[in-house]
């Protein structure tokens, strides 16, 4: 760890994996490693963010990510406010930027935002005075998810160099996939993508990953298997004909997993659709599945991100009486 208070990030927001440099990523992972230790201790609370206000602004419900940020903020001593904005209030005429202006007037120090549209965090970051953390924007990015995945992998494998990571499932709609492709590629891993053609984005070949439509081939020799959630509304004929056909060709079961490298790790950002993209026997196998560990790493990564961003916050002004 670089000094107690040394700067880690060049920017005052975390909008995507795309804007992180390799040293920044490793510094965040190092810091998160320390927080894993802290989180496992009995006394877990720190006063680092004492007096700071963190607002969780969620336009899309997400129990998992929201509670992870909430816990991270509270463990660092921040005051955390959860705001769930239903789509209905947006349709009442209030724009995203109206909401931003309202929140900005409350003078928060950090804004964690989840929105169903790509670019929402970027848009907010241009209109508010505080740090903005992108907790998922449409099909664009979900940087803390990619960071926690990287942390999970690094703690198990030490190095990313040459590691084969196969990401399977709904790549088209997945911000998790996009952030992971960017982040893991930067760290030196070889990323493969496996999905039916309807769930691959246009010109995905240019993302720098290897593209497969045959999941078995994509899994051959893989070190890491990352499964993605398939949304219910996309299962019944629009993108894939049925869940049973999807599971047959793209669901992770023991048989397909056998193609991967012995000891390969299975990951999933959650929540899982058992029997759709992943077989329970695989998901619950503690020998291969690190899915629960990902959740634990999630809190540590978010603490590291909040810590890193807080280092760029003005101090004197806040301490003034």
């Amino acid at each position: 760890m670089r000094g107690v208070d040394g700067p880690i990030l060049q920017t005052s927001h975390l909008l995507g994996a795309a804007s992180l440099s390799v040293p920044e990523i490793h510094a965040l992972l190092d810091l998160a490693d320390e927080y894993v230790g802290l989180n496992r201790a009995t006394e877990r609370k720190r006063a680092l963010l004492k007096g700071r206000t963190l607002i969780n602004l969620f336009f899309e419900p997400s129990t998992r990510t929201q509670s992870s940020f909430e816990l991270a903020g509270k463990r660092l001593g921040a005051d955390v406010l959860n705001m769930s904005v239903r789509t209905s209030s947006v349709s009442k005429g209030e724009t995203l930027l109206d909401t931003a202006a309202t929140l900005n007037a409350m003078r928060p120090d950090m804004l964690v935002v989840r929105h169903q549209d790509a670019g929402a965090a970027e848009l907010l970051s241009r209109k508010v005075d505080c740090c903005v953390v992108n907790a998922g924007d449409g099909a664009h990015e979900h940087p803390t998810q990619a960071l926690l995945d990287a942390l999970t992998i690094r703690r198990r494998r030490n190095s990313f160099e040459g590691l084969i990571v196969t990401i399977c499932g709904d790549i088209l709609h997945s911000r998790v996939a996009r952030s992971n492709i960017i982040l893991l590629s930067k760290l030196g891993a070889r990323v493969r993508l496996a999905a039916p053609r309807t769930l691959l984005p246009a010109e995905v070949e240019r993302f720098g990953a290897e593209i497969y439509t045959d999941m078995r081939e994509a899994l051959a020799g893989a070190d890491i298997v990352m499964m993605l959630r398939l949304q219910h509304e996309r299962m019944a004929g629009a993108f894939v004909p049925s869940t049973r056909e999807y599971f047959r060709f793209y669901g992770l079961d023991r048989d397909k997993l056998a193609r991967a490298k012995p000891g390969a790790l299975v990951m999933h950002p959650g929540p899982m659709n058992r029997g759709v993209e992943i077989d329970s026997a695989v998901a619950d196998d503690i020998e291969v599945s690190v899915i629960q560990e990902q959740v634990e790493m999630g809190v540590a990564i978010r603490m590291a991100v909040l810590d890193a961003l807080a280092r760029g916050l003005p101090r004197e002004e806040r301490n003034a009486p």
């Binding site: 670019g119 099909a139 246009a202 995905v204």
Partner: peptide
């Protein structure tokens, strides 16, 4: 417009 840029931005696109 559908293409690499829209895919990277995560914006719904048409060919």
């Amino acid at each position: 417009n559908e293409g690499e840029f829209a895919s990277r931005l995560g914006i719904p696109s048409a060919p």
